Deep mutational scan, measured.
Amino acid sequence: MDPFLVLLHSVSSSLSSSELTELKFLCLGRVGKRKLERVQSGLDLFSMLLEQNDLEPGHTELLRELLASLRRHDLLRRVDDFEAGA
């Protein structure tokens, strides 16, 4: 399986429902409101961002910004580990 997708799945499974709600709010300018209403998990949101090329294995800035906004430094370390091994 693609290591970047494994990372996104790992991050998604670590998010609380309130954190997902916050991420959806933060992505309002990037993803349409109707699409965001269908998001049920972090993976749903990340999939939309992947489709729009806002997220890519070599383009993790948005993911970092979102996780920093949540103050999830543990998840930021996972992104660091991914990039160190990528």
Rank of each mutant, 00 (worst) to 15 (best):
F25N: 15
R72V: 02
L70P: 00
S13N: 05
S18F: 09
K33M: 11
K35P: 07
G32E: 12
S17N: 12
L23D: 01
S16E: 05
S69R: 13
L36A: 07
T21K: 14
L5R: 10
R34K: 14
L75Y: 01
L63S: 02
L28F: 09
G85E: 13
F25P: 05
L70Y: 01
Q40N: 12
G42K: 03
D81T: 09
D74L: 01
L63N: 03
L50T: 15
K33I: 10
V79A: 01
L5S: 14
H59C: 12
R77W: 05
L7S: 01
V39W: 02
V39K: 01
L62M: 10
Q52I: 08
F46I: 04
V39P: 00
H9L: 06
E56A: 15
V39G: 02
E61I: 11
M1R: 10
L20W: 02
L43A: 13
L76P: 01
S12C: 05
L45P: 00
L50P: 02
S47Y: 12
L23E: 01
S13P: 05
S18N: 13
T21M: 14
L8F: 02
E22P: 00
L5M: 14
R72A: 03
E65F: 11
K33N: 09
L8T: 01
L28D: 15
A86F: 08
E37V: 08
D80W: 05
G85H: 12
L66D: 02
R71S: 11
E65L: 09
V31K: 01
D44P: 01
L23I: 07
L5C: 08
L23S: 02
F4W: 08
R30Y: 10
V6F: 12
K35L: 03
T60I: 08
E19Y: 02
E83D: 11
G32N: 08
L49F: 07
S12M: 05
R38Y: 12
S41N: 11
L67G: 02
H9K: 15
D74R: 01
F25S: 15
A84V: 13
S16Q: 06
D80G: 06
F82P: 00
S69P: 10
P57W: 10
V6C: 13
S41F: 05
E37Q: 09
V6D: 05
L62A: 06
T21C: 08
D74W: 00
T21D: 10
D80S: 08
E65K: 12
L55T: 06
S13V: 11
V11Q: 02
G85C: 10
R30I: 08
R77E: 12
R38E: 13
G29V: 06
R34E: 15
M48R: 06
R38V: 12
D54M: 14
P57Y: 13
A68S: 15
V79E: 00
F46G: 02
D44I: 04
E56W: 09
L20Q: 03
D81W: 06
D81S: 08
L66I: 06
A86E: 14
R64L: 03
V79P: 00
V79F: 05
H59K: 14
S12Q: 02
C27D: 03
V11D: 01
L20D: 02
S12D: 05
S14K: 11
L5A: 12
K24G: 03
R38S: 11
L63Y: 01
L23F: 01
A84L: 10
L23N: 00
L50H: 15
D81E: 11
K35Q: 14
R30F: 08
G85S: 12
G85R: 13
A84C: 14
P3C: 08
K24D: 03
M48P: 02
P3E: 15
S69H: 15
Q52S: 11
G32S: 12
E65N: 12
D2Q: 04
E56Y: 12
S10R: 08
V31T: 05
Q52E: 11
L43D: 12
M48H: 10
F46D: 03
L20N: 01
C27W: 03
R64T: 05
K33S: 11
S18K: 14
L76T: 07
G42M: 06
R64I: 05
E56N: 15
L7R: 01
L8H: 02
D44T: 06
L23P: 02
G42L: 09
F4K: 03
P3Q: 14
L43M: 15
T21Y: 08
D81N: 09
F25A: 14
H73T: 12
L36Y: 04
D80V: 07
D74I: 00
N53F: 07
L20A: 03
A86R: 13
L49C: 03
L20P: 02
F4S: 02
L8C: 04
E83M: 08
E19Q: 03
D44N: 04
A84G: 12
L36D: 03
E22K: 15
R78S: 08
E19P: 01
S13G: 07
R71N: 14
R77Q: 11
L63I: 07
E61C: 11
S41E: 07
F4G: 01
L7C: 05
Q52H: 09
L5V: 10
V6Q: 15
V6K: 15
S13R: 15
D54K: 09
R71V: 05
A86K: 08
S47P: 03
L15F: 04
A86Q: 14
T60V: 11
E61S: 10
R38F: 07
K35G: 08
L67P: 02
A84F: 11
C27Y: 04
L15W: 03
L75D: 01
L28K: 15
D80P: 01
L23V: 05
F4Q: 00
L49N: 01
S47G: 13
M48Q: 09
G32K: 08
L67H: 03
D2I: 03
D74H: 00
K33V: 10
R72E: 03
L20E: 03
T21N: 11
L55R: 05
F82G: 03
L50V: 14
P3F: 05
L49W: 00
L5K: 15
S12K: 01
L5I: 13
R30L: 08
V39Y: 02
F4E: 00
L62W: 08
K35R: 12
S16H: 05
L75H: 00
L45D: 03
M48E: 10
S16T: 13
E22L: 08
N53P: 05
L15M: 06
C27M: 11
R78L: 12
L15D: 00
D81L: 08
S41L: 04
E37H: 07
G29H: 08
S47Q: 15
R78H: 10
C27L: 11
S12W: 01
E37Y: 06
L66W: 06
E56H: 13
E65G: 11
R64F: 04
L50Y: 15
F25C: 14
G29L: 05
S13I: 15
H59A: 09
E83G: 05
L45M: 06
S41R: 06
G58Y: 09
E51R: 08
L55D: 06
L70F: 00
H9Q: 15
R34Y: 11
C27I: 07
E56D: 13
H59L: 04
P57F: 13
L45S: 02
R78T: 10
R71E: 14
E22M: 10
H59F: 09
F46H: 00
Q52W: 04
R77T: 09
K33F: 08
E61L: 09
E19L: 01
T60H: 07
E51W: 06
L45E: 02
P3K: 14
C27E: 02
G29S: 12
S17W: 07
